[in-house]
């Protein structure tokens, strides 16, 4: 029959008042309290940073870029989140409309990196080119987005 290794019991657990074996380590506990205190401050900073938009989806993350003649204005998020969708809003001025249509070309570098999951409004036509995709949007009267 196989035997199991044994050893005699030793009094290794530290005692309180030399009578009750508790094994309390107050030195460690004080270090842990200091660590958790710092951690709570860090957690507070994370929450404030998130509310401000330091991790995206907030005031600090919102950005706008436009052409000099304001033909195109792009509202985008300066900070993107990995594997999470985001909204890129493009406003076209009147000078972008030709024959009631807006033609918009997106380069491969944008499509490959960000993808294009959904367009609102839907393009009338999309043509895949060598280094990007060309979208055509109908635009009867007023400037469209």
């Amino acid at each position: 029959m196989p035997s199991i290794e044994t050893k005699p019991v030793e009094d290794t657990i530290s005692k309180v008042n030399d009578e009750l074996a508790v094994g309390s380590d107050l030195q460690f506990q004080h270090k842990w309290w200091r660590f958790t205190h710092a951690l709570w401050i860090f957690f507070g900073c994370v929450i404030v940073a998130d509310l401000l938009g330091c991790f995206g989806r907030g005031p600090l993350a919102n950005a706008t870029a436009q052409t000099n003649d304001r033909t195109i204005q792009v509202k985008y998020e300066r900070i993107e989140r990995y594997a999470a969708p985001s909204i890129l809003r493009i406003d076209f001025g009147p000078t972008a409309i030709h024959e009631g249509k807006i033609q918009f070309w997106v380069g491969e570098s944008v499509i490959k990196a960000l993808g294009a999951q959904r367009f609102i409004p839907q393009p009338e036509k999309s043509v895949v080119g060598q280094d990007g995709i060309s979208y055509t949007f109908p635009c009867p009267d007023s400037p469209r987005r």
Partner: peptide, 8 residues
């Protein structure tokens, strides 16, 4: 963690 004495 470590056990902590609350009352002695």
């Amino acid at each position: 963690g470590t056990p902590l004495v609350l009352l002695q």
